[in-house]
């Protein structure tokens, strides 16, 4: 079901909500990525070992 009306007002409304939410969501992904260096505390992957058993 369409939430926004099929009018010019609906187009503006859709645009404002979509553009605003896109910023919020992308910023969220940015925050998650900023935490990625913490993963390195879990350990290190031995790339040579991985390549050895690769297919």
């Amino acid at each position: 079901m369409t939430i926004v009306p099929d009018t010019l007002y609906g187009a503006v409304l859709l645009s404002v909500i979509d553009f605003g939410l896109s910023f919020v969501m992308i910023a969220g992904i940015g925050i998650v990525l900023a935490l990625f260096p913490l993963l390195n505390r879990l350990g290190k992957i031995d790339e040579k070992e991985l390549r050895k058993g690769g297919h």
Binding site: F19, M25, A27, G30
Partner: peptide
């Protein structure tokens, strides 16, 4: 460089 990620939203004004 996570702070540059926000540009992925900024450059989409054209869509709207």
């Amino acid at each position: 460089n996570p702070k540059l990620v926000i540009l992925g939203a900024a450059a989409h004004l054209g869509i709207f």
